[in-house]
């Protein structure tokens, strides 16, 4: 996700060429796919460039003008500029708020997925390599975690620790790591039965070396492939939590919080405060899901949930 337009993290060298070719092929062959990938690239770019292209800094209270609050799209500002998507209750320009919100949403989605992947891959790798009681223990915990809907676990968790970007990221990690652990264990178990691992074991290579240099790079692909969809579900989860009022703080609104802020005005017909951030959120999630679903199918990885 580092480069726009190429929505998959770089792959260890051993698996590089065929994997990358398949990713690019999966994207190139389908027009809808190409559309989704381009859209995703544009959204990531907008989020990265937000401080440079946003007409206003929505966090800087001095630049907000309360006289300009709740203006409809296209209205002229006191200062002469135009609010293309209108303003919210604090007189914030919606274009700027959405660009910054996109940044927060993507940041939470990427960091939480990264953290969950790190823990899940480690747990899955250890479970597959060591086996026995360790494997049984880890997998019981995984089953236990996956038995409950993530929204509920995250909600209750945040209810007891309070809101904050770091806390939301932690809560999402807690509810997401288990699915990676299960996937990683399954693919590492398949890999372990292969001859090259047997050869490495007979060769007397240390277990640590076998795990990190052989097992990890050859079985991590399945996890990386589903990661795109997981970023989308992490962003959805964050938006939902923020909507329910336990997510990101009001000082750094994500798209979900912007939508929540606009909800009360929606009923009186001032639709733009909630609808435009909502459209941005939907475009982000749908493009991630389209790209992710296509990748998953072209690698034939079954989602674990």
């Amino acid at each position: 996700m580092s480069k726009p337009g190429l929505p998959v993290p770089s792959i260890p060298a051993s698996a590089d060429t065929p994997l990358r070719r398949r990713v690019l092929k999966a994207i190139r062959n389908r027009p809808t796919m190409r559309g989704a990938a381009v859209l995703l690239g544009v959204l990531v770019l907008l989020a990265l460039l937000a401080p440079f292209i946003a007409p206003q800094n929505p966090y800087d209270l001095a630049s907000l003008n309360m006289m300009d609050n709740r203006l409809p799209p296209g209205a002229a500002a006191m200062g002469g500029a135009t609010y293309w998507l209108g303003t919210d209750a604090q007189g914030r320009d919606m274009v700027s708020a959405i660009l910054y919100g996109l940044r927060t949403s993507l940041l939470v989605g990427l960091l939480s997925t990264g953290g969950a992947m790190l823990i899940g891959i480690t747990a899955g790798l250890f479970a597959a390599q060591i086996g026995g009681a360790v494997d049984a223990l880890i997998m019981r915990i995984v089953d236990f975690m996956l038995g409950f809907p993530s929204i509920l676990v995250a909600l209750v968790l945040l209810a007891s620790v309070g809101r904050g970007i770091d806390k939301v990221i932690l809560a999402i990690i807690v509810v997401q790591w288990a699915q990676y652990a299960r996937l990683m264990r399954a693919s590492a178990l398949v890999e372990r039965r292969k001859e090259y691992i047997e050869a490495a074991v007979n060769f007397g290579l240390p277990t640590r070396h076998i795990m990190l240099a052989h097992l990890l790079p050859n079985s991590v692909g399945a996890v990386l492939v589903v990661s795109t969809i997981s970023v989308a579900s992490a962003i959805t989860l964050e938006a939902t939590l923020s909507f329910l009022g336990v997510g990101v703080p009001v000082t750094q609104p994500s798209l979900g919080l912007l939508i929540a802020n606009g909800f009360e005005y929606l009923l009186s017909g001032e639709y733009w405060i909630a609808v435009f951030p909502g459209i941005a959120l939907v475009l982000l999630i749908v493009s991630l899901n389209f790209v992710g679903d296509r990748l998953r199918r072209s690698f034939n990885v079954r989602a674990s949930t």
């Binding site: 938006a239 909507f243 999630i285 749908v286 899901n289 679903d293």
Partner: peptide, 14 residues
């Protein structure tokens, strides 16, 4: 795919 992607609160609001 679209029905699956959209967050529940967003569908409700729409």
């Amino acid at each position: 795919v679209i029905g699956f992607s959209l967050p529940s609160f967003w569908k409700g609001m729409m």
